[in-house]
């Protein structure tokens, strides 16, 4: 029982990332009809917003410490972050420690801008082209973006730790009456799960309870009729592209303490997120979220030693197996709507 609970918990944080990426993908597909293979790159750029924030906060003043020497025997250069000089070591240190949560404030405008530029600069030229063309151009864009990031940040993972208050783990086992250490869960993963629920609720709330959201939903259902009513639906869809980019970016920012960011991390999530979208049902926002969590948890279960010993390699193919089964039994996915991507 404890092993099952443990794997459900483990699946939640990865499921959260899948759900957030798939939510953005579905928003773009549902509004603009574009299959955006650069969406994983937006997740990765979000993660590097956290790295950038960390670097900004640690821009340092260099002083020479004559009492120590560096590896070449020269007087040691000591770097002290300006933030610590300005606010004192305690407050300055705390600001640097909270670089990842603070990066959210930095990432939102950056990601919305990147989303706007991507949509207006490139993707809008491919609205009327076949999906295959859209996939090719967005996939190419993803490769360009990751090479740009690699050029500036290098190829190796960059440590981006969570605030000290959220390091360590929480013993759920004790809370549920199990032995100590039976079910432990890192605090930051718990934060990530709660954060993703807040973002998902905010996106749904925005679409459900605002006039803007109502128009967007109407446009998703019948673009032409909304246009005939004199509403500039294209402009709203462009804004939705920016919002989808911000959602992917925020998912990336908060994921950095879980996996040290590297330029390739977007690709690692992209393919699985597409499977999530297809399993959830193309164009269905609740379907994307549901499938994200479902596949995250199933993937976690498949990594259990007991299951791997029965079916070796199952952890690598479980998502695709489930996708096949669901698509065979429900060809439109779990919550797919009739007419979406159907000629």
């Amino acid at each position: 029982m404890d092993a099952i609970l443990l794997q459900i918990l483990n699946g939640l944080d990865k499921g959260s990332a899948y759900a957030l990426i798939a939510l953005g993908l579905t928003l773009i597909f549902g509004t603009l009809g574009v299959v955006n293979f650069a969406h994983g790159a937006l997740f990765m750029i979000g993660a590097f917003c956290a790295v950038t924030m960390q670097r900004i906060l640690t821009i340092s003043q260099t002083t020479i410490d004559e009492s120590r020497t560096d590896f070449l025997g020269n007087p040691m250069k000591v770097e002290t972050p300006y933030v610590e000089n300005w606010f004192g070591p305690e407050l300055g240190g705390a600001i640097i420690d909270w670089a990842v949560p603070l990066a959210i404030l930095f990432a939102i405008p950056v990601m919305i801008c990147i989303g706007f530029i991507m949509e207006r600069g490139l993707i809008k030229h491919f609205y009327k082209r076949p999906h295959a063309d859209q996939i090719l151009v967005t996939f190419g864009l993803a490769i360009v973006l990751q090479e740009v990031i690699k050029y500036f940040y290098g190829a190796n993972p960059i440590p981006t730790p969570a605030p000290a208050a959220f390091t360590g783990s929480f013993d759920f086992g004790v809370l549920l009456g199990f032995d100590p250490n039976a079910i432990i869960y890192p605090l930051w993963r718990l934060v990530y799960f709660v954060f993703s629920l807040i973002i998902i609720a905010a996106v749904f709330g925005f679409l459900q309870f605002t006039t803007f959201g109502m128009v967007v939903r109407a446009g998703m259902a019948d673009r032409e009729t909304v246009g005939l009513l004199g509403i500039n639906i294209d402009k709203r869809f462009t804004i939705m592209f920016g919002i989808a980019a911000a959602v992917a970016g925020l998912a990336g920012v908060m994921y950095t303490p879980i996996n040290s960011p590297n330029y390739h991390m977007g690709m690692d999530f992209l393919v699985l997120s597409f499977v999530v979208v297809v399993v959830g049902g193309m164009g269905s926002l609740p379907g994307a979220v549901l499938a994200g969590f479902l596949l995250g948890i199933l993937e976690s279960f498949a990594s259990m030693n007991e299951i791997k010993s029965l079916v070796p390699g199952i952890d690598q193919i479980i998502i695709y197996l489930i996708a096949i089964v669901i698509l065979l039994t429900r060809p439109r996915g779990l919550m797919g709507r009739k007419g979406v991507m159907e000629e």
Partner: peptide, 13 residues
């Protein structure tokens, strides 16, 4: 693999 959590979680137990 990039996420090893499901491999690490059973270690303590």
């Amino acid at each position: 693999s990039t996420d090893f959590s499901s491999y690490i979680a059973p270690v303590l137990n």
